[in-house]
Simulated assay, not measured.
Amino acid sequence: MWLPVHKEATALEAVGVTHTGNQRGFVKAEVIGFEDLAGAGSRASTKSAGKACIQGKDCIMRDVDVVESCFNT
């Protein structure tokens, strides 16, 4: 799903775009730059190449970041 967030949004604000309830259980975000993802061809390849990083809730999102959110349920 492709959802826009405002410029310089934090990871916590970005997960709230899909649903504000997501912010309550937010633990971390796995962030991959779009260029890295496109060059590697898949998320698995990007991870194995060391291009994915784990960020906390205060991480500032860049314009072309691809983010997978991790939650505590």
Score class of each variant (00 low, 15 high):
W2C: 05
N22Y: 03
V66R: 01
M61I: 15
A9Y: 02
V66N: 12
H6Q: 14
R24W: 00
F71N: 08
M1W: 13
M1P: 03
V64A: 11
A40L: 12
R62H: 11
R43Y: 05
F71H: 15
F71C: 07
A38D: 11
T46V: 14
L37R: 07
S45G: 15
E8K: 04
F71T: 09
K47Q: 13
T20G: 02
S69P: 14
T20Q: 00
N22P: 00
G16A: 09
L12V: 08
E30W: 04
V31K: 04
R24K: 09
K7Q: 11
R62T: 05
A38G: 06
G39F: 03
K28A: 11
T46L: 13
E8S: 08
M1F: 10
F34P: 01
F26R: 02
V64M: 07
V64I: 05
K51C: 06
A9G: 06
E30D: 13
K47L: 07
T20R: 01
S45A: 15
V64K: 07
Q55V: 07
G16C: 03
D36C: 12
V31M: 11
V67E: 02
T18I: 12
E8P: 01
N72K: 09
L3E: 15
P4F: 02
D65T: 09
L3P: 03
L3K: 09
A14G: 08
A40W: 04
M61F: 03
D36N: 15
L3T: 12
A44M: 11
I60A: 03
A11C: 06
S69F: 15
F34R: 14
L3G: 08
T18S: 12
T73E: 15
F26A: 01
I32G: 01
E35G: 10
D63N: 13
D36Y: 08
R62E: 15
E35L: 13
M1A: 11
P4G: 12
R43W: 08
G33F: 06
D65C: 11
G39L: 10
V67Q: 01
V5S: 07
